[in-house]
């Protein structure tokens, strides 16, 4: 019995320690962020940020676009198979447009980036830790938070909302292709229906979610890297852990944000 309490206590302390570390890391990064900004910050940090933007955003573009097209097509097909029975096939447009703008665009992008870049952050920082590169930064009077994390965080904050917009666009395009081939609905007419079905608040809530997801992915990935202890095997474990934890936290955050928007933002 005592062992159960001990186990629960240890796990609770570990989880609280993790959340506390995430918070401390977030605030330290926010304080260091101005150094990564263009014009007012350090030129080398901004250059690092641009490189990260290309890696997180530009390199993920084909994958995210293809995922969005496939998901848009699946959503339209599944929706149509049910809605057709009630003669409400045109509601597929609302389903795809609203679904992607509010929900699937940010979520799909976050899951794709978490798998690609979250794991890469953990592996890169973990390897730097194992090879004493982080220590060598410290002894050169350079802060790893400012040098390594701030450019990654800023790049994620820029790239992930941009990818979300692109992913939403391709999801809606996939819905349009389905409508064209199944009902011969003209693309311009489809576009008009899409514009009528989505409101500005849908776009804003989607973008707010994408910023929150970017924060989670960047910080969980980096924290897992900083927590690496030991040799190369622990880098592998931290990489896996970064993907699992960031995907889990993204979905939990999505549920919380959706509930908040449902109860507070009324049409």
């Amino acid at each position: 019995m005592a062992n159960i309490f001990e186990d629960v206590g240890t796990r609770t302390i570990n989880e609280l320690d993790y959340v506390g570390s995430l918070n401390i890391q977030l605030w330290s990064t926010l304080r260091a962020m101005k150094k990564a900004l263009p014009f007012i910050g350090n030129r080398y940090r901004w250059e690092a940020t641009v490189r990260q933007i290309l890696q997180i955003g530009y390199d993920a573009l084909p994958m995210v676009s293809l995922m969005a097209i496939c998901t848009g097509f699946i959503l339209a097909l599944q929706g149509a198979s049910e809605l057709r029975r009630f003669g409400a096939l045109h509601y597929v447009i609302d389903l795809v447009a609203v679904g992607f703008t509010r929900e699937l665009g940010p979520l799909l992008t976050a899951i794709a980036v978490s798998g690609r870049s979250g794991s890469a952050f953990a592996a890169e920082i973990g390897t730097m830790k194992v090879t004493e590169e982080l220590d060598s930064l410290r002894v050169m009077a350079l802060e790893p938070i400012e040098f390594v994390l701030a450019p990654k965080f800023l790049a994620a904050l820029i790239s992930i909302p941009c990818l979300t917009i692109i992913s939403t666009f391709f999801g809606i395009v996939a819905g349009g292709l389905f409508m064209f081939f199944s009902t011969r609905l003209a693309p311009l007419l489809y576009l008009r229906y899409v514009m009528e079905s989505i409101a500005l608040r849908d776009v804003i809530t989607g973008l707010i979610k994408s910023v929150a997801f970017a924060t989670i992915i960047a910080h969980v990935g980096c924290l897992e890297g900083f927590r690496v202890r030991g040799g190369p095997d622990s880098v592998g474990r931290s990489t896996t852990s970064a993907v699992v934890k960031s995907t889990f936290l993204v979905i939990v955050a999505d549920a919380i944000f959706t509930a908040i928007f449902y109860f507070t933002v009324r049409p």
Partner: peptide, 10 residues
């Protein structure tokens, strides 16, 4: 400081 593993940035 020069570390044992050199710790040059790869």
């Amino acid at each position: 400081v020069a570390f044992q593993s050199a710790a040059l940035f790869n």
